[in-house]
Every structure is written in C-alpha cells, then in structure tokens.
C-alpha cells in the first residue's frame, strides 16, 4: 500500500458543497489548510464549520467538489491508510465503559496493526509517548469514566496522538469544558502540533480562543467562507462584524499581546 508523503501535508478544498435533505450546509467552498500549522474554523451555529471538518476527516461524502489531502482526493484513500495519516476526534465521543486510559490510548494503534496484527513494541512505545505528551502518566491505569472532563478530553487526544498521524482534526474539543480546561486542552493541541510538526484543524466556538491558539483562521457563515487569514487579519472590527453580525471591538491582551475581541 503506497503511503504518500504525509510529513506536514495539508488539505486542498475546491468547490466543496454539501446538502442534506435539500438544505444546503456548505456551498462552493474553496480553501487551503496549510501544512504544519494550527488552523481554527470558526463561525455561528449552523455556519457549516463542523460539517467542513467532518468532510475533511471523511466522515461525510461531499455532494459536489473535492477534498484532497497530501495532493490525493480523500475518498480514494484506503480506510487504514487514511487513518494512519489523518486523525479525527468527534465532538461527541462514545462510551469507554470499563477502559483504562492506557487501554483507550492503545486503541489508537488500530490503523497500524489492523484487526489481527500483533500489538508490538512500537505500538507500546507510541502509546507511552502519547500518554507522556498529554501529561497523563499519573492517570494511565485509571478508568476513563472516573476522570474529570479535562482529563478525559486529554485521554481522547492522547488516543488520536497514538494514531501517529501527520494531521489532527478536532471538532469543538473544548465544548464541554470549563474555561480552565479549555485553556489546558487548546494549549496542549498547540504545543503538540509545534513539537511534532503536525497539521492541526480545530473547530472552535470562541473567536478569542482561536486567535490565541491558532496560526490561521477560516471563518464561515451560512456555508460560505467569509474570512481567512492570520489572527491579526481576522481580528479587526470590520471583519468580525461581518462574521458575527454585530459590532465588535478589538484590543490587545494586556500580557500576551494577542488580539481580544468583545461586543460593543
């Protein structure tokens, strides 16, 4: 199985449309996800940002247009080959009844060993590494269900990390978390992508979080792209007014210096 070069590969989206029961969710979308960077997808509820990330992760099939990863259209990839290149963490994760953190993270090795292959030393090493990188060593033998929300989300991220891919897609990874855990998880994602040179795509609700942790931001509204660029380019009153539909003010964060928006 030929595996294309995935080190720091990115996505090309061309003329992408998605309709469900006649309702258009995305229409004629063109955008590029830069390799080796953290990209934020922002927008209203129903703007199509979650649909977009699910199309990138092959969870959905486009109605028309194309999504390519590393220069190859995603639908032509084999199941496990794609899973060795792109990891996707859904917003709603399923039941982990009875699994320990280490066992959950171990499941991330499936694309490499397959249904019948041996769980070898490399697999063990990758799992330990993912656990260490996510700071989960003290919890490794704990049951996932007994962890706090932030710890649990980190365990899931560790699982996608054990997948050992060049690209990480995360659909609203912070939606169920309180503010402290949001900072913790997004910081972790940013750090991991930098350390491993991975491409990260994160769907976010909060413009300020996106501005603080992402290298690039794509803003969607009504299924169309309304703005793209570095945080500094997006975080202008004019641009934000277009995205959110209300007047916004932008100021600099007192200590970090990153731009911060607030209504007004």
């Amino acid at each position: 199985m030929a595996t294309p070069d995935i080190s720091a590969a990115g996505f090309e989206v061309r003329g992408l449309s998605y309709t469900i029961d006649g309702a258009s969710i995305l229409s004629g979308l063109d955008l590029t996800i830069e390799p080796g960077s953290v990209t934020g997808l922002i927008g209203h509820n129903g703007s199509g940002k979650s649909t977009l990330v699910r199309l990138l992760g092959r969870q959905l099939t486009p109605t028309s247009g194309s999504v390519s990863f590393a220069g190859t259209e995603v639908r032509t990839w084999g199941e496990r080959a794609f899973a060795r290149s792109v990891a996707y963490l859904p917003q709603e994760t399923g039941a982990t009844v009875g699994l320990t953190v280490r066992e959950l993270v171990g499941l991330g090795r499936y694309p490499w060993h397959g249904p019948l292959g041996r769980f070898g030393p490399t697999d063990h090493a990758k799992v330990s590494d993912a656990i260490a990188r996510c700071g989960l060593e003290p919890f490794a033998e704990r049951i996932v269900d007994t962890l706090s929300g932030g710890e649990r989300q980190r365990a899931w991220i560790a699982m996608t990390l054990a997948q050992d891919t060049g690209c990480l897609l995360l659909d609203e990874p912070t939606s169920a978390l309180d503010i402290a855990h949001q900072i913790e998880v997004l910081g972790l994602i940013q750090r991991l992508c930098r350390e491993k040179g991975m491409t990260g795509v994160v769907v976010l609700h909060d413009v300020n979080m996106a501005a603080r942790f992402c290298d690039n931001i794509h803003a969607l509204k009504g299924g169309r792209l309304v703005a793209s660029g570095a945080p500094a380019a997006i975080m202008t009153p004019a641009c934000l007014a277009e995205i959110t539909g209300i007047a916004m003010q932008v100021m600099a964060h007192p200590t970090l210096g990153t731009p911060v928006a607030c209504p007004g």
């Binding site: 092959r58 899973a83 990891a87 996707y88 859904p90 399923g94 991330g108 694309p111």
Partner: peptide, 9 residues
C-alpha cells in the same frame, strides 16, 4: 462510536 471507529480506519 461511529465517528471514532471510522477515523481509526
């Protein structure tokens, strides 16, 4: 879950 299973290949 379906999404996770699918993303694991």
């Amino acid at each position: 879950g379906t999404a996770t299973s699918q993303s694991l290949g």
